[in-house]
Structure formats: structure tokens, C-alpha cells
Design a protein around this nucleic acid. Structure first.
Length: 260
DNA sequence: ATGGTAGACCTTCTA
């Protein structure tokens, strides 16, 4: 089973780009972030025609996450528990039907910039809530994949120039510590497990020729429960997607699980 | 060079 995560930066603006990639890659499951539309505006028919079932948690203008699967999606949860007042659409979770079912979440973790503001506080609180919920899911001792745009640069080798990210919410010590705490719960960063050697990026800013200069960062991650990590056979960052026509600033990351 | 781009959208916010 191939599971993809991709921050598409507006499904409305990105439809042809995303469809072109889907027609070639045909992932079994896809976690999309920043669809930037309400559920009714999501181009469902186009993906259903490619054989996908959909679960959507959309929002007008900002955020919005989606799950696409070639097999039915069950036990859908929209929104991250722990704060009834949080109205950002940043989390959707469902169980993907299969001989060995897999619980998959599409995550759009808050950016948190600028630091020193309520936005950074919200990011750290959101990471605490995610750790709390992940702990509950891990207790089920099932295959689990928490995939998405974490807006976290885990280590210095996950960016081109660490010094330039020192003041950024994505690379703050508190941010990196919160991401480490997630892993200490028992979650495995799929990319680090398979590729070993760091250096792959998943995001290049539209500005300042970041793509041309390869000024990238690795912030899109798939975190796996032990029951999923045991079955991990490969991970690929689809770097070429950044060079497509009308690209997102993020590229897809695809993990393959052998669930036979 | 205090820059530069992209998306949603009502003029500025988010990233």
C-alpha cells in the first residue's frame, strides 16, 4: 500500500497539477493539506473518476485537509481533540479498509510564525494536543500513519542553511523538542528509517529563487506506529513535482507499506 | 537590495 502526503496549496488553483500527478502515481491513499476550500467546493468528481473515496474537512480560504483512498474510509474523525474553541480545519483521520486496516491522519500543523506571538503559542499547544491524541491511538497497537505538513524542520541537516532558519517558528528549539516528544511516544519518521542519509527536502519557497538554488527544507513527514513501521518497505520524496507547471511549494512524499 | 512569490479575496492575511 502506497500512502502519499502532499500540501497542495489550494486544490482549486492546483487541480490540473494534482490530477496529472495522481494519474501517473495512483497512490492507494493520499493525505492532502491546504485544500483552501469548503467541502462543497472540493472537486470530488474528478478524484472519484480516478477511483478514490473521499473524506473532507475543508474551510473557506485557509487550511483544509482531505483523505483519499481507493478502498472505503471508515471511522472518520474531523478535528484534533483537546480544544473546542479551535476552528481551524487542520486534522482528519480515518481507517483505510484493507486485509490489514490502517488508520491514517492528514495533518496540517500550524506554521507558528512569527515567534513571540499568539500564533507560536497556538502551534506549541496544537503539538501538545497532537501528542496527547497520538498517545491514545498508539495504545490501540494498530498500523497507524500520521502524515502531513508538520511545519517542523527536525534537524539542521533538514534545511539548506540552518542559520537562516534560526528565528523561524519551524526551527525553534521548542518546536523541535515537541517533535522529538512525538517520536519518543513510539512513532517512527518514515523517511529517516528508509533513506538513512538526510538531505531530502519537501518544500521550497516560491520566493527568492529558492527552488533554483535548492534552498529547501524537510517539513512534510509520515510518522508510523510500530505496527506500521514494521511493514515499511520504502519512502520516496517526489522532488520532480516542484518542477511541474503551476507547482505547489511542497512536493508529495510517498511511503510504501507491505500489508500482505 | 530589509528584498522576493503565490493564493484567497475586498484590502490585507497567510504562508
Amino acid at each position: 500500500m502506497r500512502i502519499a502526503t502532499w500540501n497542495v496549496n489550494s486544490i482549486g488553483a492546483r487541480l490540473e497539477t494534482v490530477l496529472a500527478w495522481f494519474r501517473v502515481e495512483q497512490p492507494d491513499v493520499a493525505c492532502l493539506q491546504e485544500i483552501k476550500c469548503v467541502d462543497e467546493k472540493f472537486p470530488a468528481a474528478e478524484f472519484e473518476q480516478l477511483g478514490y473515496n473521499l473524506a473532507l474537512h475543508g474551510q473557506k480560504s485557509y487550511n483544509g485537509v482531505a483523505l483519499l483512498s481507493k478502498t472505503p474510509l471508515e471511522d472518520v474523525r474531523k478535528g484534533l481533540p483537546g480544544d473546542e474553541g479551535d476552528d481551524h480545519a487542520r486534522y482528519i483521520e480515518a481507517v483505510v479498509s484493507a486485509a490489514r486496516p490502517v488508520r491514517v491522519a492528514s495533518i496540517y500543523l500550524p506554521n507558528g510564525n512569527p515567534i513571540g506571538t499568539e500564533k507560536f503559542v497556538y502551534k506549541l499547544r496544537w503539538m501538545d494536543r497532537l501528542a496527547c491524541h497520538a498517545g491514545e491511538l498508539l495504545a490501540l497497537e494498530e498500523p497507524l500513519v500520521l502524515a502531513g505538513d508538520y511545519n517542523v524542520i527536525p534537524e539542521p541537516q533538514d534545511c539548506d542553511n540552518p542559520a537562516s532558519w534560526m528565528g523561524d517558528a519551524l526551527f525553534q528549539p521548542e518546536t523541535r523538542a515537541a517533535f522529538r516528544r512525538l517520536r519518543w511516544l513510539g512513532l517512527t519518521d518514515a523517511y529517516m528509517e528508509v533513506d538513512g542519509a538526510p538531505g531530502g527536502y519537501t518544500f521550497w519557497d516560491y520566493q527568492a529563487g529558492a527552488w533554483r538554488r535548492n534552498h529547501g527544507i524537510r517539513i512534510d513527514h509520515l510518522l508510523l506506529s510500530p505496527q506500521a513501521a514494521d511493514r515499511l518497505t520504502g519512502v520516496l520524496i517526489h522532488r520532480d513535482a516542484r518542477g511541474m507547471d503551476k507547482p505547489s511549494d511542497h512536493v508529495p512524499v510517498v511511503a510504501e507499506l507491505d500489508l500482505g
